[in-house]
Amino acid sequence: MKRILIFILLIATSFSLSGQDKKVRFMPQWFAQAQFAGYYVAKEKGFYAAEGLDVEILHMSSTTTNNVLDYVEEGAVDIFTNELISSMIADAKVGNLVNILQTGQESGIMCVSRIPINSFVDLQGKRVGRWKTGFAEIAEFFCKDFNIEVDWVNSIQANNLFLANAIDAMLCYSYSEYISLLFAKGRIPNEYQIRFSDLGYSFPGDGLYTTKQYLESNPDVVDKFIKATKKGWSYAVANREETLDIVMKFIRENNIITNRPMQQKMLEEVLKLQTSADSKKIEYRRIDKDTFYMLNDYLMQLGYIESPVDYNTFVR
């Protein structure tokens, strides 16, 4: 019963729905912000409705310590976004998740430190903040490879701990916590930050997921959702200011503390992480098998999973 108290905020739709519209409950993995701009645009511009979908965008409360998978487990969500590695870990436990679209070609995970660092190795023995709900696995891969031990401090958000000098460094996403820190400190010199992709640990990030059961019973809905979502992201690329207007609308409705310049920077970074380094265009590449197997190995060695996640069932 401890998981009964969940805070789901219902986003009021701005148009009436026809009787044939298929209801879809969609939840992004974090609070309302530009990280999910494509979904908000698809909803607001009627791309989902055009596909015959009545999409509800649900957000978790900003004070909750739950993550999106808790809501999936409760059966409160049909389609959701999540980070690849945490999805693999979750799938290894329940075996019912399917990656239906890989949006983030790069995770954007990085580290910001109060002391100058050349590598994450320099944080040996230091207090490093990370999310209580996961997402730190790439840093742990590094620690394992380089035999580094850090004093991990789990928290909902480590920003205030970092600003209060309670921790020496913190993991953050380049499109999220990093930007909040930048607006709280004014400047973060290069020698105080490092990206794990620059250390050779480049892995895909955010993706779109559903459960196997939902996919089997609603394959058309999933296809239409993907189609409308892609359209939403394309529209966001071409119409940044309008996209920001839409994002800020969702932010206000969810009482999130932020501002437009911060969301603008987040949108730019998220789109950058979705862009292929080769084609300079947004691509939705299927997860690479070798990368997937490498992640399986890392996760098993770290004890996150006992047996490898099945690529064929996990990746649609």
Binding site: R3, N66, V153, L161
Partner: peptide
């Protein structure tokens, strides 16, 4: 579990 105050910054900062 939903309001796990041990991971709230107001609790963690004085603790740390």
């Amino acid at each position: 579990y939903e309001y796990d105050y041990f991971y709230q910054d107001w609790y963690q900062i004085p603790k740390l």
